[in-house]
Write a protein that binds this DNA or RNA. Structure first.
Lengths: 154, 154
DNA sequence: TATTGTTATACTCTATAACTATA
DNA sequence: TATAGTTATAGAGTATAACAATA
């Protein structure tokens, strides 16, 4: 039994039945991921930093001197595509590629002084964003639960 | 204190310190989403169906006669890009676009008989995949928890 | 022979502008 | 004027192949 006019007397567009799609885990994961990434882009608009660039900076800071291949691989980025990414960060004087003594084929990645200062700021901005997300989730326990559940799917 | 040789006497590649990145909600969401989508692509390789195409078929089946714009919008797809998607499904005789009587600008979307049979099969394949994911998560309660948490981020 | 960084390239996904035919 | 569908196009993101230098 249809009752079109119950809530919209002027016959607005009917709502679609989305019950089945909203039960699909992959679909919901994607929507949530896009939502969080869009928040990231908005928050980091002034710093002109994309999510992947932030993780690269963090990873270099926590693992100075590593090869491009190592950083790229742990992030699931093809080394061919990582070249452009690192070049961009290098042009902004955030990262430097130092030819390795031990292996002359490889570049050791380091943050510049400017890169360290930039990351310190980015981290504080990011921490506030994460705290906002944790608040949305309902606290640290909920965050832990989420990361735990995501781990089982990865 | 570094103890490189504790577990790798032959001095294999050191593991990177990834603790900070693996604590980032957006990063973990993305990895999990990619993982689930890759599973989908593997499971649906024979049916040659992408995740977005599956949700489109489901949505049309549950909302026959709707306009392209309506289906596209609820999925967050630009109507310009939705054209190609629907054409692909139409060429496979899964979907038909019937010019609307009420609004001659619009196409009403329906599944063909073949599309209904195809979707019935796809649904059963998809159900098995979801059951596998639920098992990984630790049961229906864990699934409910996950969808609940994802909702708060979306 | 294998690996590192690189270039070139192609394919998908996404976003915008502009057109047409209708409303 | 606004909307539905469409086309064209540009920009990201991602994947593979091939090359030079080095291991």
């Amino acid at each position: 039994m249809r009752r079109d006019n119950e809530l919209s007397p002027e016959s607005e567009a009917d709502n679609l039945r989305t019950g089945e799609t909203t039960g699909i885990i992959g679909y919901r994961l994607r929507r949530a991921q896009l939502s969080v990434f869009q928040l990231f882009l908005a928050v980091f608009e002034d710093l002109k930093l994309r999510p992947v660039e932030y993780t690269v900076l963090v990873l270099i800071a926590d693992n100075p001197g590593r090869k491009q291949t190592e950083i790229a691989e742990v992030l699931g980025i093809k080394r061919a595509n990582f070249v452009t990414l690192v070049h961009g960060l290098e042009e902004r004087n955030l990262v430097e590629r130092i030819p390795s003594d031990a292996d002359k084929r490889a570049n050791a990645l380091h943050l510049t002084k400017e890169g360290e200062a930039f990351l310190a700021h980015a981290r504080s901005v990011h921490d506030r964003m994460e705290q906002d997300l944790v608040k949305r989730l309902g606290g640290q326990k909920a965050r832990k639960q989420l990361l735990d559940l995501l781990d089982r799917l990865t």
